[in-house]
Amino acid sequence: MTLHATLPETDAWELFWAIKQGKPVKVVDGRSPEAFAREHIPGALNLPLVASGADAATADAGCVVQTTSLSSLSPDVLYVCCDDGIDGDVAERTACRLQAAGLKVQILVGGIDWWRRDGYSTEGENAQTGTRVGCGCGRRG
């Protein structure tokens, strides 16, 4: 489902290298706190979409991004929005909300599923080992 035709996309390899090179990029995972706790991309920020009940000014088809966290996000960072990779709906909704707040966004094609399939590590209760995402400083640790 495409919610916003102008949202740029990136893939796992491009995201991995941007993080490794220390570029100003942050992964934003729009899944539930429970799904995020099970497994997520290292260093990701969890801004879950929540069920309706928020005020109408911030509602987006019955879902919103928790706005309490938006004020702390920097306009100088590229926010790569992800979800489980099944249909991209959560990532798109998250990206639309961040973009509406004036932030730079991209969608991670395939979400955490393709991230994992491409061999990159995850964190959480069901963490997967793979290619480690480092800080980009050249040190091993």
Rank of each mutant, 00 (worst) to 15 (best):
V90M: 08
R117E: 15
D113G: 10
I112Q: 09
G102S: 05
Q99N: 03
E14H: 09
L103S: 06
H4D: 15
V65P: 07
L103Q: 01
D29T: 08
L15K: 02
A51P: 12
C96H: 06
S32P: 08
G124K: 04
G134V: 11
T122C: 13
Q99S: 09
T67G: 10
E92L: 00
F16N: 10
G138E: 08
R139T: 13
L7K: 00
A37W: 08
T68D: 14
A12R: 01
K20V: 12
P75T: 11
C135M: 07
C135G: 07
A56E: 12
C82A: 10
G141K: 04
V64H: 08
G85A: 04
E14A: 09
D89A: 12
Q128G: 14
A35C: 03
G130I: 12
V77H: 03
P75I: 05
V65Q: 05
R93E: 05
P33R: 06
W13D: 13
T10R: 01
D118Y: 06
D84G: 14
D118V: 00
E125S: 13
D113I: 05
A5H: 13
V27H: 00
C81W: 00
H4M: 15
Q66T: 14
D55K: 04
K26R: 15
A91F: 03
G136A: 02
L49G: 03
G138A: 07
G124V: 09
V80E: 00
V77I: 08
T58E: 14
A100K: 02
S32T: 13
T58I: 14
Y120C: 11
G88M: 04
D84M: 08
A91G: 11
S69P: 09
S32Q: 13
T131K: 13
E34C: 03
D60K: 10
R132C: 13
Q21T: 03
I19Y: 03
A95I: 00
G53A: 09
R31E: 02
T10C: 10
M1W: 11
R132F: 09
A91T: 03
C96D: 08
R31W: 04
V27R: 01
L78C: 12
A95E: 04
L70R: 01
N126Q: 12
G119R: 07
D113V: 05
V109I: 10
G53H: 11
G134D: 10
H40P: 06
L108Y: 00
C135E: 10
L73K: 02
E34L: 10
N126I: 02
G138V: 11
L78E: 09
D87W: 04
C135W: 07
G110H: 01
Q128P: 05
C63L: 09
D55V: 02
P75Q: 12
D87M: 02
K104F: 05
T129D: 12
C81A: 11
T58Y: 06
P75F: 05
L73W: 02
A95V: 01
V28H: 00
H40W: 00
A35R: 06
F36W: 13
A54Y: 03
P42I: 08
D29G: 08
A35V: 07
E39C: 08
A59P: 03
T10I: 08
P33N: 07
G124W: 01
R117T: 09
T122N: 13
C135R: 05
Q66D: 15
A56S: 07
G53R: 10
C137L: 13
T94L: 14
L47I: 10
